[in-house]
Design a protein around this nucleic acid. Structure first.
Lengths: 154, 154
DNA sequence: CAAGAATACATAGCTTGCTATATAAAACAT
DNA sequence: ATGTTTTATATAGCAAGCTATGTATTCTTG
């Protein structure tokens, strides 16, 4: 039973993800931002509005997780919520002007961390790595679906 | 400001890590195990004892996180804690016999998820992917160290 | 040897993820 | 038109990660 965990894709992916999050969170902290806000930030960066459900699906997280994230972002003054006048179940979420002011800085930090992370790879390896991540997520998402098919995946 | 997040290593790594964890947790649940227990499980699978500090360093997580994980594992009857008789600060942690009985099943589940995740890659891509994950963690860990040098990294 | 530093672990409080379930509104179907 | 189903969001409770800090014990050093 001697397993080399450095050969385990799941273990290494989890480890890398934690290091990414730690690096990003450290650098975003002075801006009042954190890694969990990024998917929302990028989804809304065009200035438009999205519903909670759209944001969750877009970020690949569950609805209650997105609800909690949006609560923190609202608390921190980064988003606004506006009830739809026609369908009162729906809420439209937008970035606040204050959040949008930080766009350039946030983008720079994200780029910087990604660049540092990939600095040990040549450009071919970088391409294969990103491509592989895409294929891995596709495979895992498909396996998840087969085990537990949700109809709402449109 | 139109960023394709599928090109962001950090975003994709985080996404893949969540899919890995979800898949593993689903399959480990019937055994009373979860993904957070795996690093401890593998570190102790040889039947020997480790201290909390050794386990945390080995798993690449912080000491309080490991303390919480060990509390849950103890609650679930998967480990035993034994105070060192010489140095009363130190606790020796071992897998319980019950935990060790599940070793083969757990290994099989981990292998199965890893295999499914990598099924879309040919063997060259798999090698490059695992190698890249190693280099990415090395780069990120080094950057972390440079920002905030801890003396205890022996 | 006593005082201070270092070490191992514990605790508090937060974030970001999950599942399961509740609630309210809208849509559908008889 | 009302009863059922679907949809959007909310809430509860847990896991696993983090930082900051507390506590007890051991080591070091003057």
């Amino acid at each position: 039973m001697s397993l080399n965990r450095h050969q385990s894709a799941g273990y290494m992916t989890n480890w890398a993800a934690r290091l990414f999050a730690r690096a990003i969170d450290q650098k975003l902290k002075p801006l009042g931002f954190s890694s969990g806000y990024l998917p929302v930030f990028f989804a809304l960066a065009d200035g438009g509005a999205r519903t909670q459900k759209q944001l969750a699906r877009d970020a690949g997280i569950e609805q209650p997780t997105m609800a909690a994230t949006l609560n923190r972002m609202e608390r921190d003054g980064l988003i606004t919520r506006e009830k739809d006048s026609e369908d009162r179940r729906v809420t439209h979420i937008r970035l606040s002007p204050e959040a949008r002011e930080n766009a350039k800085d946030i983008q720079a930090i994200v780029d910087q961390v990604n660049e540092a992370a990939l600095s040990g790879l040549n450009s071919l390896e970088q391409r294969v790595f990103l491509d592989a991540l895409g294929k891995v997520t596709t495979s895992l998402a498909k396996a998840e679906d087969e085990d537990d098919p949700k109809p709402d995946d449109q």
